[in-house]
Design a protein around this nucleic acid. Structure first.
Lengths: 193, 193
DNA sequence: CCTACCGATCGGTAGG
DNA sequence: CCTACCGATCGGTAGG
């Protein structure tokens, strides 16, 4: 049945994301993964073509998600300040709504094979370039403090990353506070005066 | 000869740190490591007791380094603002002087075995507690903006981390600029007004 | 979806 | 410091 097929593949993908996050791609065996979804290892191959495919899907699915988010924010807002604020909020939203998949995306992409690794790097580079040009615009307009845009970009992106490792669903009540404070902190570092 | 023994072990440790950074602990085989230092795999065991020992040494050596740095800064400075500034500069100095070893320390410690993992987590927790209490002091004194000290701590620590991944020795001329701008950015987010 | 099984590679030891 | 080699485990296939 197509319906159960899809659902089982989804289960496998989610279990894989969790295992990749907890142990890393290389330390996760297909037998570990099979156990997590109550299958024997060979049965996995009825749903997926291999370990590498799982990683590929996780990485590129998230790359598309970030590209789409950036697209949306660029069309919803025109001021650099609003755009950066929305981007930080977007990153934090993703971090708290789908933390497991994102930590694979953040940390395990280096285990992609050569061709996919290259494509992934290019997509990330493109994302960074667009984010950076928003920062540059804000500096040119005198809204942001003048600084090296690349340094500012990486500092902002990194400053968000701890949330992926730290966030647990039980802390749901705190998440709005976390968002507000991280945004406050970063914007204070960014804005002129 | 003791002298050559020490030097060869050092070569192994440095090659391992580089491989762990590039491929991760699990994806690095003892045969990879042997090749990097021009030995056959079994010969490694004349210098080290096993793969796990290498990771243990990298992680705890760096834990001691950070503990010592914090100790020194706490005795050299008394004002929270000076202490935080010095801590950020210290992290950036370590990142640029010994990037390979530190990325293992940052990312590969989760592959420590149970007993060491527990000890490592405790040491890190202790470091974070001391750093956080400096932040709390600054807030109580009205020097830092009032916020959740834990959120501020993790945001600061993360905002420094990209340098480990990004820094390459050829960029030595830029490093003073990177330091100044990261410190400027973070302190602007932290300071009242 | 399973059992049976493949060749490759793993960390590490024996013995010199 | 090497050759020879160990048992365990890896990702994945055959065949039903």
């Amino acid at each position: 049945m197509a319906e159960t097929e899809i659902s089982k593949k989804q289960q496998i993908m989610e279990a894989a994301a969790r295992l990749f996050r907890d142990r890393g791609y290389s330390a996760t065996s297909m037998r570990d993964l099979a156990k997590a979804v109550h299958l024997q290892a060979p049965s996995l191959y009825n749903h997926i073509s291999g370990k590498q495919e799982i990683l590929k899907e996780i990485c590129f699915q998230n790359a598309r998600r970030f590209a789409a988010g950036l697209e949306r924010i660029e069309s919803d807002y025109s001021e650099p300040e609003d755009r950066v604020r929305a981007l930080i909020e977007f990153h934090l939203e993703v971090a708290t709504s789908d933390a497991t998949s994102i930590t694979s995306f953040n940390d395990e992409w280096r285990h992609l094979e050569a061709a996919e690794l290259e494509a992934f790097r290019q997509q990330r580079k493109s994302y960074e370039r667009r984010f950076r040009s928003i920062i540059e615009q804000g500096m040119q307009q005198g809204i942001f403090r003048t600084a090296d845009p690349a340094i500012v970009l990486y500092t902002i992106l990194s400053s968000i990353r701890w949330v992926y490792d730290w966030y647990q669903p039980e802390r749901a009540t705190e998440i709005e506070q976390v968002k507000a404070e991280v945004i406050g902190f970063v914007m204070a570092g960014l804005l002129e005066k």
